Simulated scan of single mutants.
Amino acid sequence: MTELQLRQARLQTVRDHMALECTQDWDGVIDTFEHPRYEMYGNGQVHDGEEEVRKYFDNSRTAFPDQKNEIISLAADDESHTVLVEFYLLGTHLGELKLKGKTYPPSGRSFKVRMAASFQFRPGSSKIICERPYTSPDLKLQQLGLE
């Protein structure tokens, strides 16, 4: 595979990954990984391995069952084997939200926060080895009127 083909394959993997998250096709999302791993730069949590990642999916959709993303832009850096994505994360607070040691009952309010994420790949591979979303959990709370 040429460098250009690998770059295009990685960009497509990230597009597919994010689209599958929107439809909650968790098997499909897992298949985009060589090894499932999320490092959350908003709260410092790490979800490593398929079992932990699936728990993260379940937990994150408890409060926001309609959570989805809208990609704003994508960029690939061949040297660092990384794809960067800027996106909006959207959802409606329809379930119990547990955050920062507090529990918030459903408010019915919606949020739309601008975020970024990096997707790391092994050299020569188009399978993800780590997703690192970057955000502040306070943004959701502020938009939901909970902070």
Results as ranks from 00 to 15, higher is better:
19 A>T: 09
20 L>P: 02
22 C>W: 07
22 C>R: 05
23 T>D: 07
23 T>F: 01
23 T>K: 03
23 T>G: 06
24 Q>M: 03
24 Q>V: 00
24 Q>E: 01
24 Q>H: 08
27 D>I: 05
28 G>N: 12
29 V>H: 03
31 D>W: 10
31 D>Q: 14
32 T>G: 03
32 T>P: 00
34 E>P: 09
35 H>Q: 12
37 R>D: 09
37 R>S: 11
38 Y>A: 11
40 M>F: 15
40 M>N: 14
41 Y>L: 12
42 G>E: 04
42 G>N: 00
44 G>N: 03
45 Q>K: 14
46 V>D: 08
47 H>E: 04
48 D>N: 05
48 D>P: 04
49 G>F: 03
49 G>H: 02
49 G>C: 00
49 G>I: 00
50 E>R: 07
50 E>N: 05
50 E>L: 04
50 E>T: 04
51 E>I: 10
52 E>W: 05
52 E>Y: 06
54 R>E: 02
55 K>R: 15
55 K>P: 00
56 Y>M: 14
57 F>R: 06
59 N>V: 13
59 N>K: 14
59 N>P: 10
60 S>A: 13
61 R>W: 15
61 R>E: 13
61 R>M: 13
61 R>S: 15
61 R>A: 15
61 R>I: 14
62 T>P: 09
62 T>S: 14
62 T>A: 15
63 A>R: 12
64 F>C: 11
65 P>H: 02
66 D>F: 00
66 D>H: 03
67 Q>W: 09
68 K>M: 07
69 N>E: 11
69 N>Q: 12
69 N>V: 15
69 N>D: 08
71 I>Y: 01
71 I>Q: 02
72 I>E: 04
73 S>G: 09
73 S>H: 12
74 L>Q: 06
75 A>C: 08
77 D>I: 01
78 D>H: 09
78 D>F: 09
79 E>T: 09
79 E>F: 08
81 H>L: 06
81 H>D: 11
82 T>Y: 01
83 V>Q: 01
85 V>K: 15
85 V>S: 15
85 V>E: 15
86 E>N: 02
89 L>T: 14
91 G>V: 07
92 T>N: 02
95 G>A: 06
96 E>V: 13
96 E>A: 15
99 L>V: 14
100 K>S: 12
100 K>P: 08
101 G>M: 03
101 G>K: 05
101 G>L: 03
102 K>P: 07
103 T>A: 12
103 T>Q: 10
105 P>V: 04
105 P>C: 02
106 P>K: 06
106 P>G: 06
106 P>T: 05
107 S>G: 11
108 G>V: 01
109 R>N: 11
109 R>I: 11
110 S>R: 05
110 S>P: 01
111 F>V: 06
112 K>W: 02
115 M>Y: 01
119 F>A: 02
119 F>I: 02
119 F>P: 08
119 F>H: 04
120 Q>R: 13
120 Q>M: 10
122 R>K: 09
123 P>T: 03
123 P>V: 04
124 G>V: 06
125 S>R: 00
126 S>W: 11
126 S>Y: 13
128 I>R: 04
128 I>H: 04
128 I>N: 01
129 I>D: 04
130 C>I: 09
131 E>L: 05
131 E>D: 11
132 R>T: 10
132 R>H: 04
133 P>K: 06
135 T>E: 12
135 T>D: 14
136 S>K: 07
136 S>E: 10
136 S>D: 14
136 S>Y: 06
136 S>L: 13
137 P>L: 12
138 D>Q: 15
139 L>Y: 07
